[in-house]
Design a protein around this nucleic acid. Sequence first.
DNA 1: AAATTGAATATTGTCGACAATTGACACTTG
DNA 2: CAAGTGTCAATTGTCGACAATATTCAATTT
Lengths: 222, 222
Amino acid sequence: MGMFSALETTDLVQQIARQIINAITDGQLKPGERLTELRLSKEFGTSRAPVREALRLLESQGLVVSSPRRGFFVRTLTSDDLRDIYELRIGMEIHAADLALQRITDREFGLLRAQADKLYELAEEGSIGEQIFADFTFHRMLCAFGGNARLLKVYDDLAVEMRAGITLIGKLYDDPHKIAETHEPILEALQNKDRVKLREALRYHIGVARDEVVKLFTDMGA
Amino acid sequence: MGMFSALETTDLVQQIARQIINAITDGQLKPGERLTELRLSKEFGTSRAPVREALRLLESQGLVVSSPRRGFFVRTLTSDDLRDIYELRIGMEIHAADLALQRITDREFGLLRAQADKLYELAEEGSIGEQIFADFTFHRMLCAFGGNARLLKVYDDLAVEMRAGITLIGKLYDDPHKIAETHEPILEALQNKDRVKLREALRYHIGVARDEVVKLFTDMGA
DNA sequence: AAATTGAATATTGTCGACAATTGACACTTG
DNA sequence: CAAGTGTCAATTGTCGACAATATTCAATTT
């Protein structure tokens, strides 16, 4: 390893994309809202070109939609979309966990255990945002330990959409203590190398989240 | 229904992206090859702007990679990449099939049956390209019948990469008759609504494909 | 000869401009 | 007054240009 670390190449497109993502997942930009290139480029102090490229990037991630000659709009999530996203998440995460079962190291398991413990802490004294982020981190770690880079990339894309959906709902979908506890069967099955139990645990765990999210979203009248 | 159908809005970016995809999956553009914007824009007779946007689109699909200030390159697939892609495909397709099991109609099952029969026909008298496409269509139909739009989109993205990998290998990875036959257990399990058998059949079927593809690819010295 | 340096060339990142298209709104017309 | 038409401002699609950066390659040094 060299003496110096690579300097941050501040890619303008990347920066713009990041900011728009944040604005959407924070709820500052509302679903269906029009994103005119000129307005955005003025806010960022750039020309329209990098904004357009950033928007295309976001379009491929499903965060915004475009129709030719009409421009870009923040994607409107329906309850069907949310159901699909969580449903897909179930399938991917079960598969990742299945892969992780065969290759997880003690150190990695320890990291998962620690992350689960963090959930208990945050259930006592954390903000909703922190709880959601910690929960997400647990599941992302599980996917990462599956060792499939392509899967992790898809999972991250899904996560952005999930976050947008949850922000839209605006409240936690269950008691945080209960959420923390439901991670135990997952860890247990992982430790015992029990594939069937692991699958069951994840299917149940995420299935509950899916049902709650869809329900809350539908109740809001979406 | 009106008298006229909507005129094709020939989106330039879309057209360019399509052409580049074809060139890559056909093997005209080789892995690692540099894609300079000026050269492409000259070939297409456009300016660089739409070319850049098309390349970003392809980047998000994983077909090309870019590094800042250095430009775009056709993605170089490693055998690890191919393993990851097929591994992920196993997980997604099992999940899609699981969903399809619960909701598939007789008509849809008939379409799958017909597609499987087509594989036998093509094993006798079809080109390799036709066989691969027919096989792919069968599996894509299975995913579609799962009813999850988001999953189908991810699957399609994966398919583009799979096709690029197969083109790179340049030959079929197994006896076409054998390939056709291995679809029977899938159809059987689907008809009998046997989730476990369906999962097993798919895992085996795609697992064989994964192993063969990775093996051929590694043998080529990649 | 191998490695290093430096100038020349090629390429990207970004910009401002212009034509084509869309959507809104006032205006005509029956 | 409803329906349709024409006009105008706003916005997108595309382009060519320029500065910043990367790559190439010949000259130089070790």
